[in-house]
Structures are given as structure tokens and as C-alpha cells.
Design a protein around this nucleic acid. Structure first.
Lengths: 239, 239
DNA sequence: GCGGAGTTATTGTATAGACATTATTTTGCT
DNA sequence: AGCAAAATAATGTCTATACAATAACTCCGC
């Protein structure tokens, strides 16, 4: 039978979790393969049922196994499906890379909602604001942003002097849903000039929408020079 | 005092988790704000400590709260930092959009490792394979891939007739670490021709590396037509 | 006021036991 | 054989209890 070995490091439920996730990720238990029932794992690992259950529940939450009453626990065939990117705060990213972050507000206006990316009634008031972010003086991002003033009334009075709009929203306005889209497009002339690239050059565009419940909060279109900016995501399967 | 309300749906620990995560995400508990200790939550929710603890442990695992012995539990300031993309299987993506997926192997060769993206000794043998994926006949991705045959020996014999290399690797070769980089670049002539775009047009490039432990498994460079392909990630804060 | 020792609040881990839920298997009846 | 009812195997939830680990606080002697 599959003998599992504990590494002796840290709490028992963690050791059990690692032993099982290791067996799955190294292929010793193939996708769809059966994991012994809790009762059996209890004796295999010398642990109580709650402890074993805790380890299995964690694996199920990660998506590594699928569990069913009476039918048992199997290694999930679609275990490996997600890539996580941190694409929220260009300032933090620039500073993390050891550079100096500076930004400037390019334009700012309050206006009525129209045929916008934010799906709002025409009566709604929007803050329409454009920002440029620089890394050691080199332009790295142009941020075009619409803010629903009904969802973030304080934004109307905020000067965005020390904190750029994106970061300010993260800090002050709650949200519950977010959607991102990433595209590569030819840079229009205005953006190209601001980013120090030629019109038509490849730009990496991230579009972000957030909602609080069903109320749209903000829409942001973030332009990056294609050659100078990369989104990087790392995924380690150990949990 | 913050009164929390349970929604009565599903298991108690889930209700408690939602009640607390709701309070955090709607800003009722601000970032850095204190969550009552387990002993207090027990009486607030009428649950045992283990049940309360389970809810809090789940929130901590999600990163919504930070917990410290004796110091208590606080809402995490960097709670909202991740965007998750499913960028693994272009075939599944195309089919999910209701289109027909077809692919063709463009070239295939086994060769020695050289100055490659995979960081391998020169003696290592690689499978170097290029594939084109089509959605209802329209080219959607060019996949340039290197496979470390030491990590995936079976790949040498695999014809990749029914299953394209990326999907085949997912199904057959275990891995533990992955890294993704997303860029926008001007399409080189060869790729542009294969994707039905003009040379120099913006292409969205995803580069993926995977390892099994410390052994490199594969490197893939995935080219997409910038105007026709978007990566979309959704993030719902309810968990 | 300061350093250090003791106390305490809070989370972390683990167990045993009870009952609920659910899908499968078996049994029994026709 | 076929179908319905009962048994069963597995996970899911919850409680009560015990003790461990850690960091903050208190108090005391000087």
C-alpha cells in the first residue's frame, strides 16, 4: 500500500497535508486516484479523525482533492489551473524593484456618466482622472480611471497629492468583486507620447473593474510599454 | 459593538466566516481593525471555540486576517492583492467560448540543450516543438515549447495527435512550481504570418516555466494576436 | 524609572465522542 | 429479473476538553 512519510516539521495536520499533497503532485497518486478514507489515514498517521479531516479539508479547499460522502476522496484531475498575479499597485511594484516611484495627475474632471465602461445610469456622477507613473523618472504606466462618485463620494474632495487614485481607492473604498482583462494593443499616439514609445508600438493594457456588491466602483485602464513591463505570477503547489 | 449577523445558510463555520469576511470587505472592520477574540465570538455566535476557530483559520488562510497569539486577530491591510487567471489550456478556453478547437504541429525536433530558456546543462536532451491552435479555423495561439526529456521521457514517444503538448504535459507530468510572465511585443514576421496578423502588430505573449522540485520541466512561449485574445480573471471576495 | 520575573490573554494543536448527511451496496420481496 | 427498502461506508459538522506556545502586560525590587 502507499506508505506516506511525515517530515516531522510543524503541526501534525500540516505534515499530513504535505504528505498527501506530495504524493499527488509527484504523481504517486495519479489524477483521479483514490486517497484512503479518513479511518485508514488515522491508523497510517497515528492521528485522530479530526486531525486527518483537517488536513483533507485543507487539500479540498486548495482544489487538490475532491471529496464525496460515501464515495471517498480522489485526487482532483483539474488540480493545476490557476496563475496568480499581483497587479494592483504599480507604486508598490516599482518600489519593490528598488526604484523610485513618482506620479503626476494629467487631467481630472467630474462629469455625468455617458456611454462609459462603467455601466451606470446617465445621471450618475463620475470622477474621470488620468495619471502617469514613473519609475526612476522613466514612464511606466498611464492610468485612465473612472470613479463612481456614488460609491466613493470622498474621492471628489481628494487631491491625490501623496497617494495616487488606484492606491487611494484600495485604502478607502471597499469592494467585493473584481474583474481583470489583459490585452496587447497598438499604442495610440497620446499614450505612446506619454510612455515614451512610438505610436503603434505594442502596449500591454490591463483593464480592471471593481464592484461593491452590485454597485460599480471604478474602472481603470492601465497602459504599459510592452517592452519594458511584464506581469509576473508565481505559483507554488505546496500551499 | 459590532453586531454580526448570520445568514442561516449552510454550516455554522461557513456562516461565521462569511459574517466576518463581509464585515471586513464592506469596510465595517477597517484594514488593521481588531476582530474580537475567539472567546467573545463564541458568545456572539453561540458556537463552540473549535467552530469559531475553524472560521478564523479559514480567513487567515485566505489572507483576509492576520492572527497572533496573545495579540489577537486583525483585518489584514493587504487583503486585496491578488488576481487569478486561468491560463493553462487554450483548448479548454476555446471550447468554453463555444468554438471548435483544432491544433496542428508545426515542427518537432529532439536536440541538445543549448543557450535555452530552460536552465539545463548542455548535455540534456530537449523536445523542441511548435504548435498552432485555431478557434473555428481562426488562429488563436502559437505555442513554442521546450520539454526537458529527463523530466518527461514519455514525451519523446508521444505523437501529440489527439492532445496538444501543453495539455498532455498537464495530464501526464507532475510539477510543483510554475512561473508566468505576460508581455506585449511586436509580432515577428513568422509568428505574425501564422496568426494572421501583420509583422509588428501587438502580440500578447505568455511565457510559462514549470519545475518539478528543482528540475525544470518545460518552457512555453504562447503567442496570441493582441486584438483577438484577452486574458480575463475574476475575483470574488466571498471565497 | 528600569530591568527582569511572573502572570495572563489569546491563539494553536490535538483528542474523543456524538450525530448528520449522502451515495453506494446489499437485501428482500414480488 | 427488477424494484424498493434497509444497511453501510464514507465524509461533514459540532461540542467539550486539555494542554502548548507566544507575546503582552503587571508587578516588584532596586
Amino acid at each position: 500500500m502507499s506508505a506516506f512519510t511525515l517530515d516531522g516539521e510543524g503541526p501534525l495536520h500540516g505534515q499530513i497535508r504535505r504528505a498527501l499533497s506530495g504524493a499527488i503532485l509527484t504523481g504517486r497518486i495519479p489524477p483521479g486516484g483514490r486517497i484512503p478514507p479518513e479511518s485508514e489515514l488515522m491508523t497510517l498517521f497515528g492521528a485522530s479523525r479530526m486531525t486527518v479531516h483537517r488536513a483533507l479539508a485543507a487539500l479540498a479547499a486548495e482544489g487538490l482533492v475532491r471529496r464525496n460522502r460515501r464515495a471517498g476522496t480522489v485526487a482532483s484531475p483539474e488540480a493545476r489551473g490557476r496563475a496568480v498575479f499581483e497587479i494592483w499597485d504599480i507604486g508598490a511594484e516599482i518600489r519593490a524593484a528598488g526604484h523610485a516611484h513618482r506620479f503626476e495627475i494629467l487631467s481630472r474632471a467630474v462629469r455625468q456618466a455617458g456611454d462609459d465602461e462603467l455601466d451606470l445610469p446617465a445621471a450618475a456622477r463620475l470622477l474621470d482622472i488620468a495619471t502617469r507613473h514613473l519609475s526612476d523618472g522613466a514612464p511606466m504606466q498611464v492610468e485612465e480611471r473612472l470613479i463612481n462618485l456614488a460609491a466613493a463620494p470622498a474621492a471628489a474632495e481628494e487631491p491625490f497629492a501623496a497617494t495616487p487614485p488606484g492606491r487611494w481607492l484600495l485604502d478607502h473604498i471597499p469592494w467585493t468583486e473584481a474583474e481583470h482583462a489583459i490585452r496587447a494593443v497598438a499604442a495610440p499616439a497620446r499614450v505612446a507620447r506619454l510612455l515614451g514609445m512610438k505610436a503603434g508600438d505594442a502596449a500591454l493594457v490591463v483593464e480592471r473593474r471593481t464592484w461593491n456588491g452590485s454597485v460599480p466602483v471604478t474602472f481603470a485602464r492601465l497602459w504599459h510599454p510592452g517592452d519594458r513591463h511584464r506581469l509576473v505570477g508565481r505559483f507554488s503547489a505546496g500551499g
